[in-house]
C-alpha cells in the first residue's frame, strides 16, 4: 500500500475510535465510580428531594446538573451515557412542574385554595368544632349536599327507579331454557350405532356365497347369453354392479367363461380347469371390467328389455 494512503487510513481510524469520546477498554473502576455517582444523583433527584426541589428557590436541580456536567467528561461508554440522559430527562420534568407551580404563585388558579373552600362549603369547618379529631370531622362533610348543588352544573340523568329490570334480563333467562331443551332433544334423538355380532358377520359372508351360487344356477339355465343382457337390471345401477360382482367369482373360479370371438361378450358355463391343466402351463390372468352409469345406460338401451327376465329373481331377494 502507498505509504501516504496508509497514513491517511490510520488517521481516519484514530478519528473514529477516538479514545477521548468512546473507549471500549475503560477501566472497570472508573465505570463503577461513574455509575455510582449517577445513580446517587438520580435517586436524590427522583425520590428524596422531589417535593423540595419544586420550591421556586430550590437550587437542587441546578446543583445536580452541574455535578453531572463534571461527570460527563469521564463517560466513555454507552451505559453510563444513558444514565446521564436519564438524569437530564428527570430534571426537565421537575423543572416543568416547577414552572407550573410558579404560575400559581403569580395570581393564577390555586388548587389548594379550591380544596380548602370545598371543605368550608361541605361543612368541614363547623364539624371540626364538634368532633374530637380532625380526621373524623373531615369524614362528616356533606358530600350529598355538594352533589345536589353539582347536579345543576352537570347534565347527568337521574336513575329511573320505576323501571322493572332491563329488557335484556328477561331475554337471557328465556335463552337459558331454550338451550336446555335443545340439549335434552339431542340426547334423546341420538341413536345407538348398530352392533354387529359375530353371527351377523357370518351371515353376510354367506349372503355373497349364496348369491354366487344362485347366479351359477341361473347361468346354467339360460346360458350361453350376452354378458350385459345377463347382468343388467334396467331399474337399478346398484344391483347391476352387484350382479357383476357376484359373477366375477364364477369367472375367477373358472366356472363361467366370456367368449368375445363373435364380437359379442358371450357368457357361458364351463368346467373349471383341473390341476393337470395348470401343470400344462395354464396361467391365471386378471382383468378389470369397468361399469359406470353411462355404460350401464347404454347397456339398458341395448339389452334392458331382454335382461328383465333374468334379473327379477335377484331384485326380489332385496
Amino acid at each position: 500500500m502507498d505509504p501516504r494512503a496508509e497514513a491517511a487510513f490510520s488517521q481516519q481510524q484514530d478519528r473514529i475510535t477516538n479514545r477521548e469520546v468512546y473507549d471500549p477498554e475503560q477501566p472497570e473502576e472508573e465505570k463503577r465510580f461513574l455509575r455510582q455517582e449517577y445513580r446517587r444523583l438520580i435517586q436524590q433527584t427522583e425520590l428524596e428531594h422531589r417535593a423540595e426541589l419544586q420550591r421556586p428557590d430550590s437550587e437542587g436541580v441546578l446543583r445536580n446538573l452541574k455535578r453531572a456536567g463534571e461527570l460527563i467528561g469521564q463517560v466513555k461508554q454507552t451505559y453510563e451515557a444513558s444514565l446521564d440522559s436519564r438524569l437530564l430527562v428527570l430534571s426537565a420534568d421537575i423543572n416543568h412542574e416547577k414552572a407550573r407551580k410558579m404560575r400559581v404563585e403569580h395570581g393564577a388558579f390555586d388548587s389548594e385554595d379550591y380544596v380548602a373552600r370545598l371543605v368550608t362549603v361541605m361543612g368541614g369547618r363547623q364539624a371540626a368544632e364538634t368532633a374530637q379529631g380532625a380526621a373524623e370531622s373531615l369524614q362528616q362533610m356533606d358530600w350529598a349536599r355538594l352533589g345536589r348543588t353539582a347536579g345543576a352544573y352537570m347534565r347527568c340523568v337521574p336513575a329511573a327507579d320505576f323501571i322493572l329490570g332491563p329488557i335484556s334480563l328477561e331475554q337471557r333467562s328465556r335463552n337459558v331454557t331454550r338451550t336446555g331443551q335443545r340439549n335434552v332433544d339431542r340426547s334423546a334423538a341420538a341413536s345407538r350405532p348398530v352392533e354387529l355380532t359375530g353371527d351377523e358377520v357370518q351371515r353376510q359372508e354367506n349372503e355373497t356365497t349364496k348369491n354366487v351360487m344362485a347366479i351359477a344356477v341361473l347361468l346354467e339355465k339360460v346360458g350361453p347369453i350376452n354378458l350385459f343382457e345377463f347382468i343388467i337390471n334396467p331399474h337399478s345401477f346398484g344391483e347391476t354392479v352387484e350382479n357383476l360382482f357376484h359373477l366375477s367369482f364364477l369367472i375367477r373360479d373358472g366356472k363361467a367363461t366370456i367368449d368375445d370371438e363373435s364380437g359379442e361378450p358371450m357368457l357361458a358355463c364351463c368346467l373349471p380347469p383341473t390341476s393337470d391343466d395348470y401343470q400344462r402351463g395354464l396361467t391365471k390372468k386378471q382383468l378389470v371390467l369397468e361399469l359406470d352409469p353411462p355404460t350401464w345406460k347404454v347397456g339398458c338401451i341395448m339389452h334392458g328389455d331382454a335382461s328383465m327376465r333374468w334379473c327379477l329373481p335377484l331384485a326380489a331377494r332385496s
Binding site: A144, R145, G147, A150, P158
Partner: peptide
C-alpha cells in the same frame, strides 16, 4: 338524586 348525590358531589 337519592343515593347518587354523594357520588355526584365527589
Amino acid at each position: 338524586w337519592g343515593e347518587d348525590a354523594a357520588l355526584m358531589g365527589f
